[in-house]
C-alpha cells in the first residue's frame, strides 16, 4: 500500500474570502493532474487532513466528496481514501482543466479582437 501523503499547511494556499473546499478541490485536482499525487496514493483521513491544514473537518469532507464525484479519488471501506488508478479519469480531469484554461484565454483574445491562434502568435512575436 502506498504511504499516506502527510500534508502541511504549506502545501496549499488558501484565500479566506473564497469557499475553502473549492480551493482545496482545485489544488488537489492540479496535484493529481501533474502526478504529484500519484495514482493509487493513499490520502490522509478527514481528521488527519483537517488537523494538518487547520481547517474545519467539514471542509475536508466536502473536498473529498467533490473529488469522489469527479472520479479522482475512491474510498475503500475500512482501508481509506485513495487517488484513483483509472488513467481515463485522470485524463478526463486534465482535459477539463485544459479546456477551462483555453476558454479563459479565448475570452481574453476576443476582448482584444484576436483569435486564439492570433493571441498566441502575437505573444510569441519577437520585439
Amino acid at each position: 500500500m502506498p504511504p499516506i501523503q502527510v500534508w502541511t499547511i504549506d502545501d496549499f494556499r488558501l484565500d479566506p474570502s473564497r469557499p475553502l473546499y473549492e480551493q482545496l478541490v482545485e489544488q488537489m485536482r492540479a496535484k493529481i493532474a501533474r502526478g504529484e499525487l500519484e495514482p493509487g496514493a493513499r490520502l490522509p483521513s478527514v481528521r488527519e487532513a483537517a488537523a494538518a491544514l487547520r481547517v474545519n473537518p467539514t471542509t475536508i469532507m466536502k473536498t473529498y466528496q467533490e473529488l469522489e464525484r469527479l472520479g479522482l479519488i475512491v474510498t475503500h471501506r475500512g482501508q481509506g481514501t485513495f487517488v484513483t488508478d483509472a488513467a481515463a479519469a485522470i485524463r478526463d480531469s486534465r482535459r477539463q482543466l485544459a479546456r477551462a484554461a483555453v476558454a479563459q484565454l479565448e475570452e481574453t483574445a476576443r476582448s482584444i479582437g484576436l483569435t486564439l491562434a492570433e493571441i498566441i502568435a502575437l505573444a510569441q512575436e519577437e520585439e
Binding site: 481528521r47 483537517a50 488537523a51
Partner: peptide
C-alpha cells in the same frame, strides 16, 4: 491548540 481542536471535532 488549533490542530488539537480540529482533531477532536472530526467525529462530529
Amino acid at each position: 491548540i488549533a490542530s488539537a481542536v480540529v482533531g477532536e471535532m472530526a467525529d462530529g
